[in-house]
């Protein structure tokens, strides 16, 4: 046991590729499974949410315009970075009350899931698109395209759940504003450090920590957010958020937060728009 005093990390927000503190100057204490203080997390405000949406919107055309192969490589690069920080993530997951073995298993599963999603970048179009045999002299094809800016309310599963909601949203070209788990936000910010050093363009993922009930209504009602994933929202809060989301007809996704097993394509297709193009066939 060294008597050297540890250099602690300041957990901040991740917006537009930078790590600002909350503009409100607020923070809240994060505790471990036994109620012991671990760190202070930034307590984001609605203005931070607004800034995050602005960053996500700005990043959208560029990210959506990347080739699937390029997005796949960037996401795979993120998995490589995650692997390199296995121990750090395991330690942070343990803060949430998991045993060492449980934490290690969750981190491994999260990395593997990220790799699984990375590979979809240049395949989902083939699976979710179509060449349509219309009754006429037209070539007709449908391709899925990213919906736009997706607000993701992450579940409390500190890493596997987080990865399982963020990766499917961005792999297809969406950009995101992620509200991290309120009790377990630290892994999200460490994930942000990975993202920031992995060639992922600034603004593709923006991460807010803070009070979920304070931030989510602003995102649900934001007119420049195209879709919202309510996975991390308690059932009782859903009706009010869906009501707000109706104002600009956001795509709303709700699904179970069971992270075991094959995730399927539902979380990707939920944030895809099918575009159908017609063209005459002639000489």
């Amino acid at each position: 046991m060294s008597d050297r005093l540890a250099v602690r990390k300041t957990y901040k927000l991740y917006i537009a590729g930078a790590f600002p503190r909350s503009e409100s100057g607020r923070s809240y204490p994060v505790t471990d499974g036994k109620g012991r203080f671990v760190a202070n997390a930034a307590h984001a405000s609605r203005k931070d949410a607004r800034d995050a949406v602005t960053a996500a919107r700005k990043a959208f055309p560029g990210w959506a315009g990347r080739t699937g192969y390029n997005r796949a490589q960037i996401l795979y690069r993120i998995a490589e970075m995650l692997e390199g920080r296995r121990d750090q993530f395991t330690a942070e997951v343990r803060h949430t009350g998991a045993s060492k073995a449980q934490a290690a298993a969750e981190v491994d599963a999260a990395i593997d899931r990220w790799v699984w999603y990375a590979g979809w970048a240049d395949k989902i179009t083939a699976v979710a698109g179509a060449a349509n045999p219309v009754a006429g002299p037209y070539f007709n094809f449908s391709t899925p395209e990213p919906t736009g800016v997706v607000a993701v309310i992450a579940p409390d599963s500190p890493l596997l759940g987080l990865v399982s909601v963020v990766a499917p949203a961005i792999v297809t070209g969406n950009t995101t504003v992620v509200v991290a788990s309120e009790p377990a936000p630290l892994t999200a910010i460490t994930l942000a450090e990975v993202l920031a050093t992995s060639d992922l363009p600034a603004g593709v993922v923006n991460i807010l920590t803070g009070h979920r009930t304070e931030l989510t209504p602003w995102l649900a009602s934001h007119m420049d957010v195209n879709a919202i994933d309510l996975t991390g929202v308690p059932d009782g809060d859903v009706p009010a958020l869906e009501d707000k989301a109706a104002e600009n007809l956001k795509r709303v996704f709700r699904a179970s937060d069971d992270w075991a097993g094959d995730p399927g394509t539902a979380r990707m297709t939920a944030f895809l728009e099918v575009k159908t193009v017609w063209h005459p066939v002639g000489v």
């Binding site: 179509a130 349509n132 009754a135 449908s142 099918v274 575009k275 017609w278 063209h279």
Partner: peptide, 14 residues
């Protein structure tokens, strides 16, 4: 998106 045509519909086309 209709390219060089417009207002075409077909049951096979989303």
């Amino acid at each position: 998106v209709w390219a060089n045509t417009f207002n075409k519909f077909d049951p096979a086309s989303p």
